[in-house]
Design a protein around this nucleic acid. Sequence first.
RNA 1: GGCCCGUUCGUCUAAGGGUUAGGACACCACCCUUUCACGGUGGUGAUACGAGUUCGAAUCUCGUACGGGCUACCA
Length: 512
Amino acid sequence: MSKKVRVRFAPSPTGGLHLGGVRTVLYNYLFARKYGGDFLVRIEDTDLSRYVQGAEEYIFDTLKWCGLEPDESVQHGGDYGPYRQSERKDSYRQYAEQLVKNGYAYYAFDTPEELEKMRHAPLAIGVKTEQTHTQQYDHTIRMKMRNSLTLSADETHKLLADGTRHVIRIKMPENETVSFTDMIRGEVSFETSLVDDKVLLKADGMPTYHLAVVVDDHLMRITHAFRGEEWLPSAPVHLLLWKYLFGLENMPQWAHFPLILGPAGKLSKRDGAKYGFPVFAMNWNDPKTGELTEGFKEKGFLPEAFLNLLALLGWNDGGEQEIFTKEELIEKFSMERVHSAGAKFDYEKAKWFNHEWIKKTTVDSLRSPVRNLFEQNKITVSDDVILDKVIGLVKDRCTLLPDFIQQSSFFFKAPESIDVDAVKPKWNEAKQLFFAELIRNYELAIEWNAHTLENNLKEIAAANNLKPGELMLPFRIMLVGGKFGPGVFEIAELLGKEETIRRISSAIKMFG
RNA sequence: GGCCCGUUCGUCUAAGGGUUAGGACACCACCCUUUCACGGUGGUGAUACGAGUUCGAAUCUCGUACGGGCUACCA
């Protein structure tokens, strides 16, 4: 009988959530849903100095927009709280002390200055002339530092009793090979002698990520731990901690996701401004710098499209399907099909996903976001029936939500500028007379629909020996202002008699 | 520098020893469309390199090169 699947997303509240973060959430979520498990969010705020006001709320707002709500979290409650590590501070020290007692860790009293000196000191032995790396705090040097390994028991006790600032470091074994099976990469192994003695408990009493992740994953009964590939190098530390503290047999299964790359290496928020595409899920306004980083939401992406494109960045179902609903993703997702190589983010393809989703989304679901967009742009939309027809008419030609403005604002207010140059060179008296007659004809029209309007125009054209082809473009420009938009007679139908005639007559003056 | 992970069209990827190496984005051409799109058809374009194993290698092994990540009392 296997345990109930429990997975977690563990962000630190230091800023906006970027593509990679949301994808990690997505894969966690899909995995949990697929196996009927729990998905929880744990806030990793063990570094007080990096805390950013508003970041935590932003994370939950983002998850909400994406439709990836956790089952347990600071905001959702649950039986394994608190879900904020700063509120769990007291639970970590005992584990660190236990490690010390069992000889797996030690107290270290080195000051920042001493550490700095150690890192950059030339290698003590040997004839190395150039030093291209910094010295790690590891088994080669720990016996030369100020810690409970080099100090006598009495000295150590005295320092501790005096409240001397100290940390607790893991004592990495000197000759062990640590290996584990990653769900994506298979067997991965490390030599412990090459890994440094990472700090587990900081001088301020807070745990580092290394201790906290192991303790909390255990306390929260996590069965599968997923994170980005950047964590792979510290995996041996976590493995050892599991072995020393809770037993390897209780350790969650690991999967390290491939990185999402920008045009130059690991994707950073800087890439967004630099290359002109969003990196964060939603707009993020850094309270410290005042800097605004654009989000996919505000750029005009549908959450369904955002999830879809993220899912396919590193995973595919083996077939040729590329458009998936969240439900389909839950059904088809499998960790074994997650790629091990990093994926470079392609904004063009991202836009294609959104375009596909706009085409696929019903007018009904598009109505509200599009109406909001019009309101933001100070365009009054009074009639939802008209709005629905407009959306249906233009959605195939909208890649991002704001395209609706460009593609359909002329339905609701007269175009601000008319592309006169596209008409003028071929404008003549015959055409002028034709449109004057068209106005008279339309004024008398009883049925106002695209079909009748088109027939009438063609009849008048024929009577005046004009080719409809020469008339269509001027007519379009009169109504729309430029060379774009849906069928011109459908536009006229929606515009209504009065407005159509008004635009024709005012444009005639501009062309003449 | 050390360690770890990776390497199929420009990009995302399929092909779990035998395929003319498939699809999608982007790009180009044509068709449809009296605008712009949508749609349709077709095209350009890839197994990093070198050994080995094998009748046969994109696929397995080793080496090289290249790319990325990590190397904090950050996560």
